[in-house]
Design a protein around this nucleic acid. Structure first.
Lengths: 255, 255
DNA sequence: GTCATTTTTGACATACCGTCAATTTTTGGA
DNA sequence: TCCAAAAATTGACGGTATGTCAAAAATGAC
């Protein structure tokens, strides 16, 4: 929109900051009570602006949700990269990404919820095409990273593909297992009633069983895994901050 | 509430029927546009009753959602039973239940969505304790069925449990894989962009890999599996109707 | 200091939820 | 058959929220 992006007038900087502030206010609202919990009136009141001003930034509630979901996915990708790039073997890289998922889940509980909500038709359909594409692109980058590791594994001979099975299918499996497990953990009334204590451990063990089932070498080794978990966790804590980037706000306006 | 349940006055029968009618009207509304799509005004108008009458049946919108979710889970359990009871080997029973999940997913697309929605705090917290317990109980019965098959398998020596892994963990894995895969399929913008054509086939293959990873015998055999899928599908189509039971409406009133 | 442009404002139209006092219908006993 | 008590129904009402838009205020180029 602006022709000279290097010069932001004082006013324009103020506006950009407000965008961040809106998202900060919206975050807990959505996390606690979903789309309905996000009240434009409340945001306006808390920021001491008129409602119309908020609508200048985001065309509707759903836009705010997507903005947050995009930020969430950028953060997740950051964790993925940090986790994977320090590993040598393909299988360790995958495991490390699994641990990054755990880290994301625990550190950004609210964003995890928001990321789930955003995918419902109600929200998705009302948001702008532009932001939807942005989120889809973020997701793609996450998947591609994992897919690439899988391809390397297949090429290096670590992962023999059975007839009729593609690398993508296996990636999809790992993803289902991890994401699905977390969703169930979050939303099923009586999980520990049937005897699941530590969800993360169970998910991780199942991912290993899946990879073992496909003969992804080296096969599961409890000791090695324990060590890996410790290392990756420590590294993520050290190298990835808990604050959001919010770079994605760049050029999308409200009405 | 009524002391002589065997005699329902004419009026009371009429009321009970209305309950069903309400749910029928609500079903597509919720499926299409979530909680927000469910309008009490619209239901009242379409049924030619005042809004207050609808509130006599269901204390709030969320109650309607839960009622449908309960019906959905009863149907799912029916499919599970029908699928499992015709198999001899433990692993086939599990596979059959996986196929029952597919069947449920395709036949009752709307109920699958509703079952997901119901688990969000917003909905869950507003519904009555009574109905929540009812739904939780339904879910328990589904899980117990699968858990039982797992235990039998372990006892019979078909499934050797590695140190630190319980039957429940494996059940949880299969469940995550199936449910998670379907959720992703439903809600992720570009799944086939990364090359997943037939989601069900992928999920099924991954479940087998998981079981192979745990050495659940007999190990995966493509031909045998193909035959099983055909049989179970046919049997489900033949023996399980597509209409809801709605027995669960029994005794829960509105306000 | 002036004026065109951008930004802000908040009253308004609309929509929906859930309530409840008043009204109508049903029931069951005399 | 009739009547009074119980049950069911009604719909106007209070409350809350969204998204709009014409008018008012702030900005900044000259």
């Amino acid at each position: 929109m602006s022709i000279a992006p290097e010069t932001l007038s004082r006013k324009q900087v103020e506006i950009r900051c407000r965008e961040v502030k809106i998202l900060e206010l919206a975050r807990p609202m959505i996390a606690q009570r979903g789309l309905a919990g996000l009240s434009m009136d409340a945001i306006a009141k808390q920021m001491d602006y008129a409602k119309g001003t908020i609508y200048n930034h985001f065309g509707c509630k759903e836009e705010i949700m997507l903005a947050l979901a995009i930020a969430a996915n950028e953060k997740r990708l950051e964790l993925f990269h940090c986790a994977a790039e320090r590993q040598q073997q393909s299988r360790d890289k995958i495991s490390a990404i699994g641990i990054a998922c755990e880290e994301f889940r625990t550190r950004f509980d609210d964003l995890f919820r928001i990321d789930c909500l955003v995918r419902h038709t109600v929200v998705w359909d009302k948001a702008s095409e532009q932001r939807r594409e942005m989120l889809a692109a973020c997701e793609q980058r996450c998947m591609q990273l994992v897919g690439q590791i899988g391809s390397e594994a297949a090429q290096a001979g670590d992962l023999p593909l059975p007839r009729g099975v593609k690398v993508e299918d296996i990636v999809f499996g790992l993803w289902s297992l991890t994401y699905g497990g977390m969703i169930i953990d979050q939303s099923s009334p009586g999980l520990d009633l049937i005897g699941i204590r530590n969800t993360f451990t169970a998910i991780r063990r199942n991912c290993h069983a899946l990879m073992d089932g496909y003969n992804w070498t080296p096969l599961y080794d409890p000791e090695a895994d324990k060590k890996l978990v410790r290392n990756v966790r420590a590294s993520l804590k050290r190298n990835v901050s808990s604050s959001l980037t919010l770079q994605s706000l760049q050029d999308i306006g409200g009405r």
